[in-house]
Design a protein around this nucleic acid. Structure first.
Length: 422
DNA sequence: GCGATCAGCT
DNA sequence: CACAGCTGATCGC
């Protein structure tokens, strides 16, 4: 698509329509209360969060997009001045409340931008039907994919299973206080599940309670600590040190619903597209394999601390299922900043058909390697500066500009390398 | 001075 | 080892 038409989760000047997939801060960086560029399209739930997240935001700029139905929009081509007709649809992404994928259609072709998404077998039924119908009408030319866990080493259970594991841990500690780490948006379903299973309210901090009410949870959550032994606390206030402090007052365990460890499955080189582990869904695996996966999803890494792999991103098998369903002609990963970036074409390029030259399949991982190598190299080059900065309290003096210039240079080196290998 | 951005931490 | 998001320092207007 021509540039200067639309932006998705990007907020620089110059587009005629802006799309927001969900209200996480890494997708809203650049948005603020005084933003006034152009209409902003998002789901109803995301729209409802704007007044509290961006005080002063001009709400008349918001356009609520219904789920699973087409909307049309006329834009103006910056180059030719002619009218560009754009059709788009929001599809539930099951990442966090209000999260959607956007499917775009026009003379330019058909694009699917997933944003962050979790393709849980049970969660995504309606989204799957919507997607299948839309793709049958016209195939996807380019899939922009949440490739966070696009690597066979990333295997973990559905959120339903993970939520039961959390409930099991709590039930096994009947006289303990429980704290569960959460962020400002997401993992509500986990808390609701725990609440239902244990028939207990969940404490949240005041701002989080306001968010819960906006999301339509009216009775389950409370800010009164006397009503419950289970508290959801901000993840940044959650640490072993905190837990040790709490345990001097009252026996307390902490549950971190994400994080280590991974179930690492050995990579089989000849297994890329037709191998059993790729096509196996949870329900087809043996009971013992499921047990193994679940056991690995819980990790007690301290007397008071458990981690459970409860993820709002799709695991590798789910990404595979998704790509096989969409069958895009081509695709690109959205997550490129990660040091373990893997281009989805590396594992799934062949699903996209014959129009992917083999060197493309191999180039991207090399690029990532190059990227990593350059980073490491340039960091080691500034070790002295960093040691100095650590030893002393950083101050605004002549060293600052020196460090800054070094930082700049480092970025330029990276860019030069990327340009070179791209 | 203030918002934006970065580094560090978890 | 990922991500998300905080804090505090620094940048730049």
């Amino acid at each position: 698509m021509e540039s200067g038409l639309i932006s998705v989760d990007r907020w620089r000047n110059g587009s005629q329509a802006y799309f927001l997939t969900h209200m996480h801060s890494d997708h809203t960086r650049g948005l603020s209360g005084d933003w006034s560029q152009a209409p902003l399209y998002c789901s109803r739930t995301t729209a409802s969060l704007f007044p509290s997240r961006f005080p002063g935001f001009d709400l008349s700029l918001l356009r609520v997009v219904p789920l699973s139905s087409w909307t049309s929009l006329s834009l103006r081509s910056p180059s030719s001045g002619s009218t560009v007709r754009l059709h788009f649809m929001a599809i539930d992404a099951h990442h966090c409340p209000g999260s959607v994928m956007f499917l775009f259609r026009g003379d330019f072709g058909c694009f699917l931008y997933t944003g962050d998404f979790r393709w849980d077998a049970d969660a995504a039924d309606e989204a799957r039907n919507t997607l299948v119908d839309a793709i049958n009408e016209s195939p996807v030319d380019i899939l922009y994919l949440d490739n966070t866990y696009c690597n066979p080493i990333y295997s973990f259970p559905s959120r339903q299973v993970a939520a039961n594991l959390v409930a099991d841990i709590i039930a096994a500690h009947p006289s303990h206080d429980i704290i569960i780490a959460v962020d400002s948006l997401g993992k509500e379903d986990l808390l609701v599940h725990v609440s239902r299973i244990l028939n207990i309210k969940i404490w949240v901090w005041p701002e989080r309670l306001r968010t819960m009410h906006l999301l339509g949870f009216q009775d389950i959550f409370t800010t009164d600590t006397s009503l419950t032994r289970v508290r959801a606390v901000p993840r940044y206030s959650f640490s072993i040190r905190t837990l040790e402090g709490l345990n001097t007052m009252c026996p307390t365990i902490g549950i971190m619903p994400s994080g280590l460890p991974w179930v690492k499955r050995p990579f089989k080189g000849d297994d890329k597209l037709s191998g059993s582990f790729l096509t196996a869904s949870m329900k087809n695996e043996t009971i013992s394999a499921q047990k193994e996966l679940q056991a690995a999803a819980v990790h007690k890494f301290h007397d008071y601390m458990y981690s459970v792999h409860y993820s709002d991103h799709s695991c590798y098998e789910e990404i595979a299922e998704f790509i096989k369903l969409v069958r895009p002609k081509s695709m690109k990963g959205i997550v490129v900043s990660s040091s373990s970036y893997v281009d989805p074409l590396y594992y799934f390029g062949r699903i996209c058909g014959a129009n992917q030259p083999p060197q493309v399949l191999l180039m991207r991982p090399d690029t990532a390697e190059e990227f990593r190598a350059v980073r490491i190299k340039s960091y080691s080059g500034s070790d002295k500066t960093r040691a100095l900065a650590k030893g002393k309290k950083r101050k605004r003096d002549s060293h600052s500009s020196l460090k800054r210039n070094k930082k700049r240079a480092r970025i330029q080196v990276k860019c030069a390398k990327i340009v070179e290998v791209d």
